[in-house]
């Protein structure tokens, strides 16, 4: 088990390093002189020189890379060129919106998808199953940001139950904060839940065909007992895979949805940084997103080994 963990952790670390190289090359090497790029064509040469100085661009490329990587560990990510505040502070503040939003949406979609998928599989071929299959087919086809707009139209503009956007901050109380994140989380969660429910259903249907389900039934388990005790846990393995893959969609979705609701999250930050050509902010936000995706896949692998005794003990 420790060897397994070590191996996975090592490959996680390698992935992060290689990904950081890619991000660094695209944002710091491809544009030529990042300082000139950020300031645009009309910048005065001495302004550019000053920025070069501030960014430490006169150091060799590999030094700059190491400095940046070191900064990721120490939290010294440089100072935003447009905001004039340390990038680390900027990101930390935005994370307090983006991470709760993603977690809220993930929780909602799992809470919806698992029971719905299990129900559809248990009642395969019934009207319930047909309804779930039809509903989820539609759910997959709906772009989450458009769904968000419809939610705003119905619940904010027409019914006035929620505000149409903005975020009061957690200082206004946990309830107010969650309330502001509810519509965005639903908009993110439902299309996600549709995919997850379908995966859950088909994974369950596959496991229900397995020989060991027949064995369990021959031992005297009812259909329901065989489903809960034997099929669900086995079906979790493919579901976990999809859950891991879906995380990157969730992340992308959250960034887009923040725009619909004017939430001060990472998404707003990175789009503003792009239009301002603030590469210092962009590289750190992008790196953060990439690390998040790699980390989630790492966690999914660990989760596999907890669910499946065939993994982990011997690799």
């Amino acid at each position: 088990m420790t060897a397994f963990l070590f191996q996975r952790a090592l490959s996680f670390a390698i992935s992060v390093v290689v990904a950081s190289l890619v991000v660094f090359v695209v944002l710091e090497v491809v544009p030529g002189d990042p300082a000139a790029f950020m300031l645009g064509l009309n910048a005065a040469p001495d302004t550019v020189a000053a920025l070069r100085e501030q960014l430490g661009l006169d150091a060799p490329v590999w030094m700059r890379y190491l400095g940046w990587i070191g900064g990721i560990f120490t939290g010294e990510l440089g100072t935003s060129y447009t905001y004039r505040v340390p990038v680390a502070e900027l990101i930390a503040a935005r994370l307090w919106v983006s991470v709760p939003l993603a977690a809220y949406a993930l929780t909602l979609s799992t809470l919806i998808a698992f029971p719905v998928g299990i129900l559809a599989a248990a009642r395969r071929g019934s009207a319930v199953d047909a309804g779930v299959m039809g509903g989820t087919q539609l759910g997959i086809a709906v772009p989450n940001f458009w769904f968000a707009m419809l939610l705003v139209l119905v619940f904010s503009v027409t019914l006035r139950w929620f505000s149409a956007g903005g975020f009061p901050g957690w200082d206004a109380g946990a309830f107010e904060g969650l309330r502001a994140l509810t519509l965005p989380a639903i908009a993110l969660a439902l299309p996600q839940a549709a995919i997850l429910a379908r995966v859950m259903r088909s994974a369950l249907l596959d496991t229900l065909e397995e020989d060991y389900i027949r064995t369990a039934r021959a031992k005297g388990l009812t259909r329901g007992q065989a489903l809960w005790r034997h099929a669900v846990r086995n079906a979790l393995i493919p579901v976990l895979t999809i859950l891991g893959l879906q995380f990157s969609f969730l992340l992308a979705g959250a960034i887009i949805i923040e725009n619909v609701f004017f939430l001060p999250g990472l998404g707003r930050l990175v789009f503003q940084a792009i239009s301002a050509r603030d590469l210092i902010v962009v590289r750190s936000v992008v790196m953060l997103l990439v690390i998040a995706v790699i980390l989630v896949n790492f966690l999914v692998e660990i989760a596999y080994s907890l669910v499946d005794p065939r993994l982990g003990r011997r690799v």
Partner: peptide
């Protein structure tokens, strides 16, 4: 279900797949 496993036991062909791997 009362009968299966209690009054009648059954053994299947494929020992590789007839047991729950988890």
């Amino acid at each position: 279900t009362d009968l299966r496993g209690d009054t009648v036991g059954m053994i299947f062909q494929e020992p590789m797949t007839a047991l729950n791997p988890l």
